[in-house]
Design a protein around this nucleic acid. Sequence first.
DNA 1: CATCAAATTTTACAAATGTTAAAAAATGAA
DNA 2: TTCATTTTTTAACATTTGTAAAATTTGATG
Lengths: 200, 200
Amino acid sequence: MLNFSTYGQTYEQLENTIKKISQLSLIEDSLSDFIVLLEKVEYPKGHILIKAGRVERSVYFIEKGIARAYLDKDDKEITFWFGSESDILLSYNSFFVSQPGYESIELLEDSVLYKISNDILQNLYNNNLQLANWGRKLVESELIKTEERFISRQFKTAAERYKDFINSQPAILQRVQLRHIASYLGISQVTLSRIRADIR
Amino acid sequence: MLNFSTYGQTYEQLENTIKKISQLSLIEDSLSDFIVLLEKVEYPKGHILIKAGRVERSVYFIEKGIARAYLDKDDKEITFWFGSESDILLSYNSFFVSQPGYESIELLEDSVLYKISNDILQNLYNNNLQLANWGRKLVESELIKTEERFISRQFKTAAERYKDFINSQPAILQRVQLRHIASYLGISQVTLSRIRADIR
DNA sequence: CATCAAATTTTACAAATGTTAAAAAATGAA
DNA sequence: TTCATTTTTTAACATTTGTAAAATTTGATG
């Protein structure tokens, strides 16, 4: 549970932080019930928050930091997701259906997160209509984002995808190694270098 | 609303059909409430069920038939989804957030569908905890499927993706033109022909 | 500042995929 | 069946992207 005094925050400060994350302002009436169930956690750069092959029982809200989800293919790592401030972080397939996940998630900066277990969340969902609908909307918005990325992969060239990326997530470009961005865009690092050279 | 006598079905027959679709057996207690709100619709092959640029107010459950979602890119159509018996059919971004959708959905065979409007569904979600959680789980399972397709696009070769496709959806291969399958796999029809020739 | 290690870019060549056009095969209506 | 149309495959060539290795740049540290 959150220990407010430990972090020197008032409840109001915390509430403002949490509201920014994942449309939590939508559940105004239930917000305080929700907040007290969160656990604040901090990890250093390089920490592997979620490990492939395990069943993940927690979802995280990112207050500060950047994370990448990746999976191991042969001797390479394939990065397929970045998350930063105000994003939620979880292994979809592991968290939703309690199966071992295929992905790992690494923190790329020292990070501050709020954590809630699946057991607690399921209990909320089964007893609070407002939160159940908030959870549904949260997943709906993740689904739209994932589908849009999927489609753009299908009909845009590597150069177009890179330009989209620097327009939509310029901060990530500054904070993440280019080899991860190349992997995220589905191209080799050499191709990414060529695209960057052409743009210059 | 469903008019049972029109279609010569008993309620029990209809319930069995509906249960097969989209894990609706999960909402045993609310199932009959849900079923009476469905409207059965039938359309011929070639019908455009959902048109890009419109706000879509309905979701469909496919009882019989095949559909493809596509978008127009320059003078080409990009197919990015197939649905058949037991799948749900909707424009994610249009239905979930009431925006004009970017995709069209065409029926590739004469089809039988059950339809429910977003207004009715939202009303159910806001008044029935069991249905709200069923809706959340439905979206969660769509999200897992979409993410898996996204990732496989990123690290599998065109040949691997084709083999995955014929293993996981052999029936679709028999029922859909190869040009649509090539588009779905993100490759040209020429490349698909080459892959098929190599396998033979 | 000098040095080392890691990250990124560049080069050279190979492999995969795309484009266009044409040929072949399959489909479906009369 | 025949014929016309559509779909699929093949061929030839162009372009994109990948791999491996070398060169360069960047960043951290003494």
